[in-house]
Design a protein around this nucleic acid. Structure first.
Lengths: 192, 192
DNA sequence: GGGCATTTTCAGAACTTCCTGAAATATTTG
DNA sequence: CAAATATTTCAGGAAGTTCTGAAAATGCCC
């Protein structure tokens, strides 16, 4: 690796690699529900050794103060970025969660709470609209069949969601150190 | 459940429940990367007993022909909606995948292919920018530390992603009927 | 191959989301 | 508590996405 031999060159290459990492992570965040910039800020904090302050983030990503402030706040809300402080410095600094598995399970739990749970609640409500037990005595056969099909569909879906929730619970309960052995268990449990 | 006793009433309630289901599913699709309408079309096909044609979808969801066509095509691409035909009818009809677990694993595999794999490829490229082995002999300590930190971070992330990929592989290999027993295995394997 | 039914495409309109920058608010320090 | 510094908020504008509707393309039947 002669390429990275002079100090300036190393700095340059690392910075370039960081920039590309930030771009890739940002694009991915966009594909998921997170805004591109928020994901970029997260990437920057992940890849940087030192905690950064708002101005560092603004300068490095070329974004406005408002945007930086909002994005950092949102990341704090998600629980994957922490506040940090430097002695004799009044500014707030920020650093990303260092353990990748913890980061992952935190995001998963947060998304479940924000996106899955309200949907499941609505689905139960919708299921209740058409009754737990069917009294369609006066109805014609076509209407009855429709009703039964509808309920069967929703029940299947709800059973499935319930199963996936239990699966997700079991998975996110795993500790960072146990990940590898769990994969072995899973793969072994399914030898076709 | 006296509410649902006359034929007209049953039809009305089922239709209303369908509408609410479509709305909920559509909103959820929006929160994930899928467009709201595409998710609504999917919901409609899931909840309806009969296969539907483009005009049925347009009428029921009040969307344009173009939109309906695009959404149906995209759902076919994703592999969670199939073409169907009716004898003596030239129109194309569409129906959703009936097994929920199959639908789920199909979506998971598709997202992996479209969104995860390109990201992973980029990450490997980025990792290669800063070398497999470090030759920073001429560099000062600070630059060296930065480089090492950067590489360590990327390596950790890549190892993690690799682990999750294996996990996802093992999970999506499970057949519909085996889901329940897998959950038991997972939960049992983790009694704190 | 002409006529008819159906599907696809796509330019621009409508809508949504995101970002900026400056003003308002909060916090620390002398 | 006033000045200095740091942070948050938000109206308006920029950027991005989704949808429409009509025109083009495709496929089918006699």
């Amino acid at each position: 690796m002669a390429r990275a031999s002079s100090p300036q060159n190393i700095e340059r290459v690392v910075t370039e690699a960081q920039d590309r990492f930030i771009a890739v992570w940002g694009k991915m965040g966009g594909a998921w529900g997170i805004s591109r910039t928020m994901a970029e800020v997260h990437a920057l904090l992940m890849i940087t050794a030192e905690p950064l302050c708002t101005d560092d983030v603004m300068d490095r990503l070329q974004i406005s103060r408002g945007n930086a402030s909002m994005s950092l706040r949102a990341l704090l809300d998600w629980g994957i970025v922490y506040r940090a402080h430097k002695r004799g410095d009044r500014k707030e600094y920020f650093e990303a969660e260092r353990d990748v598995w913890t980061m992952f399970t935190t995001i998963a739990r947060e998304r479940k709470k924000r996106e899955i749970e309200p949907v499941v609640a609505s689905l139960y409500e919708i299921r209740d609209m058409t009754g737990r037990t069917i009294d369609a005595s006066g109805a014609d056969a076509a209407a009855k069949a429709k009703l039964e099909h509808h309920n069967e569909r929703l029940d299947t879906l709800l059973r499935f969601i319930h199963a996936v929730e239990k699966m997700a619970e079991a998975l996110t309960a795993i500790e960072s150190a146990e990940v590898t052995s769990t994969i072995d268990t899973l793969s072994a449990g399914h030898k076709d």
